[in-house]
């Protein structure tokens, strides 16, 4: 397998870099649209859902190729989501209530998003059920 050919590795790095550019840009765009705490919460929930779906989909069905998945998740999704801004927001939270809200929001909704994406991946594996279509684009 020529997966470790220097040119292949270079291509992977370039794609990850492009994904990082796009992901951080989208996060920056969200920071400009809504309040910073809401923006970080939003990208972390969406990114956790998308990554969870791709990981569990790969485990259950494997329709998305492994290399394209790696590039998309490592480059784009992991750059879209962020831990450092969340940690800074927690550290600089003006009052304890805000700290609790920021941590509970990101952790609680982030984990929930992963569980929801797992449920969706399982439904896809078990065949397209006739009821309630629409969410599987």
């Amino acid at each position: 397998m020529a997966a470790d050919h220097p040119l292949v590795r270079l291509e992977t790095l370039a794609l990850i870099g492009i994904g990082g550019f796009a992901g951080s840009n989208l996060r920056f765009f969200a920071l400009g649209l809504i309040s910073e705490i809401q923006a970080v919460l939003l990208v972390n929930i969406l990114g956790s859902f998308a990554l969870g779906f791709l990981v569990y989909e790969a485990q259950y069905s494997g329709l998305v190729g492994s290399k394209s998945r790696t590039v998309f998740t490592t480059g784009f999704l992991s750059s879209l989501t962020t831990y450092s801004t969340f940690a800074i927001q927690s550290a600089l939270a003006a009052d304890p209530l805000l700290l609790v809200a920021v941590v509970a929001g990101n952790y609680g909704l982030g984990f929930t998003a992963v569980l929801a994406s797992r449920a969706l991946a399982r439904r896809l594996r078990d065949g397209s059920s006739p009821a309630t279509g629409g969410e599987t684009a």
Partner: peptide, 10 residues
């Protein structure tokens, strides 16, 4: 922001 990640963590 891009170096750290929340999606992988969760």
């Amino acid at each position: 922001g891009a170096f750290t990640t929340f999606s992988s963590f969760s």
